[in-house]
Write a protein that binds this DNA or RNA. Structure first.
Ligand SMILES: [Mn+2]
Ligand SMILES: [Mn+2]
Ligand SMILES: [Mn+2]
Ligand SMILES: [Mn+2]
Lengths: 218, 218
DNA sequence: TTTATTTTTTAGGCTTGTCTAAATTTTAAG
DNA sequence: CTTAAAATTTAGACAAGCCTAAAAAATAAA
């Protein structure tokens, strides 16, 4: 059985490997966990002892099959609970992450299986992130950052890269959400800023925004 | 803010004061928490420092107003989650306690308020225990142990004193649940055993059973 | 290819919550 | 009232997770 801290480290390593490739540095882990490098080293050594990561001194860490499976299961729980909070309890998408951070550690396979059923076996969480199935399989989806689109291209918003409350609230003010149709009206070469159209309204966004919105192009 | 361990001790002290009166002994607490007396003493001292119990060396502990309020809130959360598990996820009443023991520590007032609403502001949990309202008020209900009934008296089962999975499963085999109508057909003076009737079936129960079933007499 | 900088690990400490063993206090017996 | 037993507290230790400061290794610069 794994402690809350261990589970959080495994999840962090999973996301880091996902985002930046295999072999995660001590500093990267410490950064993500908001702890000191020495604390990260301690935990890395413990996780290596438990065979959930492979690790050689100074060479970074990678999840083993077992470690990955644990991490994915936590992510599955996190995302299912987020769906519950939004779909059943009417929370907004910017309010659910912190609560799901707690709920993801509740230990009961039966609970998650029943929750999944209760929610109608959803494929995505409120932020557009895919929900791994009970075997840990994550269906690959083709999605593209808005920043990669050229003038006159368009698509449907299917996810956010950043999912901080701040960013999500910004999107709310612009009426952008999962399912929104977005078209690039104009793109500035110099700073990658864009004018986009969202349901007959046009406005200006910076690169920082377009780099955090995933679209499915049509 | 209170740690998980602190919350569990507060809850234990609340239940002990409820069951056996004010001023709870170190041993009683250690017993309920399944720890050693020395560990209980450590925690008692910490909780006294935090002003959530009043305590004098060798004299036992009692919850302060603040401590009681924290304890009741945890119990509220526990019971609401139990309702959720049974009503929404179709768990049996003997399967929910352990999961609720975890869920009761999730920290979010908003979550509990919304959960309460989602469940239709239930008054009782699946074991017949009252759910404190958000101000910590517990509506007093008149209920009587089956063991107190005399021959030919009857009532409706409104709760269980013991709520171990074992006991609940025993009740299931006899088709006894919340709402069941129970009549005392015969009572043996010597050992307090009874013959009872539950929906046109009669059977024999020991004192140990009748002392753990709450009825509302009619 | 040395030297300087950055990254990582180690050493030693702290807090929480637990334990065993021993000391102390209270309560029960004689 | 004195002694024995039971309850409670204290002392000292340990694991988990974190920290700071210092040492060691890897990487970058000169
Ligand atoms: Mn989240
Ligand atoms: Mn999410
Ligand atoms: Mn319960
Ligand atoms: Mn209950």
């Amino acid at each position: 059985m794994f402690t809350l801290a261990e589970e959080n480290y495994l999840k962090a390593i999973f996301h880091l490997e996902n985002d930046y490739g295999t072999g995660v540095s001590t500093n990267a882990i410490a950064d993500k966990m908001d702890t000191r490098a020495s604390s990260a080293t301690d935990m890395i050594q413990k996780l290596a002892d438990k065979k959930v990561i492979s690790y050689q001194k100074y060479k970074g860490a990678s999840l083993t099959k077992k470690g990955k499976s644990i991490a994915v299961n936590i992510i599955r729980k996190h995302r299912l609970w987020e769906v519950f909070l939004v779909e059943k309890l009417d929370f907004q998408w910017d309010e659910v992450h912190e609560i799901a951070e707690q709920l993801e550690h509740i230990k009961s396979d039966e609970l998650i299986q029943r929750l999944d059923l209760f929610l109608g076996n959803p494929d995505f969480d409120p932020h557009g992130d895919p929900i791994p199935d009970k075997n840990g399989y994550i269906k690959p989806t083709e999605k593209k950052l808005l920043s990669k689109l050229k003038k006159n291209q368009q698509g449907i918003c299917v996810g956010v890269k950043e999912s901080s409350a701040k960013f999500l609230q910004y999107l709310d003010t612009r009426k952008i959400g999962i399912g929104s149709s977005i078209k690039v009206i104009d793109k500035e070469d110099f700073d990658q800023s864009m004018t986009i159209q969202v349901s007959n309204k046009q406005f200006f966004i910076t690169k920082q925004i377009s780099e955090n919105l995933y679209l499915k192009t049509i």
